[in-house]
Amino acid sequence: MIEAIRIGLIVVAVVLGLFFTFVSATGVIRLPDVFSRAHTASQADTLGAGFALAAVALTLGWEPTTVKTVLLLVFIFVTNPTAAHAIARAAYEEGIEPWTTGDERR
């Protein structure tokens, strides 16, 4: 019974991870400029990778390796916004004006 729930949770986590990665990929294609794309690109890292790693942790069960998975998650959560910020700041300092409603889509 517990095993079934565990497998169910793993499947849910993998599907959610895939879903958010898909959304993120769609966003990168659909959104108009570098700033809005940076928003959605970091989504893939936070929840996409987040749920995938959660699935990994569940698959492994109670093992020392699971702790490493959680640590991986922690590092992703620290580095991901830093990277997104670096991209956005680089764009800002290049003088790129953020796209607003009414502007032409590129």
Binding site: S36, A38, H39, T46, H85, A88
Partner: peptide
Amino acid sequence: LANSITLTPGTLTVTAEDQELYVHSL
């Protein structure tokens, strides 16, 4: 704070000037 703002989708810290955060919101 800046990283938390960026982690939350829809808001993205673009740059910080002292106490002022420039945040791009979707």
